[in-house]
Write a protein that binds this DNA or RNA. Structure first.
Lengths: 232, 232
DNA sequence: TCTCAAACGAGAGCGCTGCTCTCTCTTGTG
DNA sequence: CACAAGAGAGAGCAGCGCTCTCGTTTGAGA
């Protein structure tokens, strides 16, 4: 008998799949990037071979975790922006989203490392991840585009952009359907890269023995990014 | 018989140690972060247990590689700055050093990932690395300090710095013996973090399907950092 | 309602890993 | 010249990812 379009078996299967991922995430949190499929199976009280009914390989499990992490990261960015009240305070929105991303990274460092750290084994997951991966930059770009539409954008400055890079930026804007001109897109992209750098720098221990007031330091940088883009 | 203060045995030992590291680096380059001590031993035609005469554990081998990588990275920065002719073109020097760091990272991606990527197994190497690790930022800070001394620094701007962060920056400047005032140190530190972000962003695949003209894109960002610091 | 193929779980096993221990041979120094 | 320290090899342990085989469960079609 079908229930809600899916059989009971399928439902149980989905639940166990989720439970495996949950246990894997838990182990990842304490063990670092070295995820042991056998340990996950042990945790769940099942034979290691049984896990292979749900994930064809350890890498496939990791891929699933990566996709989930991308989704969680994107969701964090979206809700942070949505919850920000003063919609025309674009710099404030940028900082709020940046903070949310950092905080998500701090609560789930190994998952952040999974998606944005060094590629794990030989190479990374296939490009099933492109969808969820684009949620975060989409939020960032959205803030900038809205600011531009509201006329709240400081006049463009920044280094000159070589002609060929400019055409590539234009092509990029077209393919991802982003309505920003080349200099603005360049500044936004650079700010995104900078944001990623600031979070990774802290998370991967480069700030150790240098700065303890990390939240304040991060805010300083996030405000710098907003200023660099031209958000007011 | 002692030779140059070290016995022959010690010399041979040092050579073999170096050879092990070399083989490990080679394997790391093709295999990613998963370094197999047994494979290294196999490559060298020796029993895996013999390697333990030279490195107490796989982690210790990795630590040695990390220290070497930090040193190589620092050396790349230093020579790039030293070779730059127009000493008062501080923005040019910054960009030259940034380029050198990126190029080193591109030629040895796994070694870069080792030192600046996500911490590998459970946690990272001990703090034997602090010395070599500081060579790169020292070069960057040096350029800024020289520019300031030459009066080639644009007037400070940037986000406000909270008082407590400011005192911590002052303390940091004191402990690492850097002669930069708080706002300038903050801008330099932020630029360093940004530089790290730009390199990692490219190296870890975040630029894939977005920008192909990577050298030009990197230059654009490097120039932006110099401008943000105030280098002329 | 019964049947049977598909789904599932467990266990054994393969080759790999890091690491330890023991045994033998070499080496350089007192 | 003796002998302890250094060095290499090999066996072995527990763990890993993954495969295969063998019973059991289950749910959909006859």
């Amino acid at each position: 008998m079908a229930e809600r379009g899916t059989s009971i078996r399928a439902r149980v299967r989905a639940e166990l799949t989720e439970e495996i991922k949950k246990a894997a995430r838990a182990q990842l949190a304490v063990e670092g990037a070295n995820l042991s499929l056998r340990a996950v199976a042990r945790e769940l009280g099942m034979a290691s071979s049984a896990v292979y009914r749900y994930f064809a390989s350890r890498d496939e499990l990791l891929t699933a975790l990566i996709i989930d992490a991308y989704d969680a990261l994107g969701a964090a960015a979206e809700t942070a922006d949505a919850r920000y009240k003063r919609r025309t305070d674009f710099a404030g929105r940028w900082v709020a989203v940046a903070r949310a991303l950092r905080e998500w990274a701090l609560t789930a460092p190994s998952e952040y490392a999974l998606v944005l750290g060094s590629p794990v084994p030989g190479y990374r997951a296939p490009r099933d991840t492109t969808g969820p991966a684009s949620r975060t930059p989409y939020v960032l770009v959205g803030i900038v585009a809205e600011a531009r539409d509201a006329g709240q954008l400081a006049p463009a400055d920044g280094p000159p952009i070589p002609a060929r890079l400019r055409t590539e930026l234009a092509a990029l804007a077209r393919t991802v359907e982003v309505d920003l001109d080349e200099p603005l897109l360049a500044r936004t992209l650079a700010a995104w890269s900078q944001l990623y750098g600031a979070i990774s720098f802290e998370l991967f221990g480069q700030l150790d023995n240098m700065i303890d007031r990390r939240a304040e330091w991060f805010d300083y940088q996030a405000r710098g990014m907003a200023a660099q883009i031209g958000l007011c």
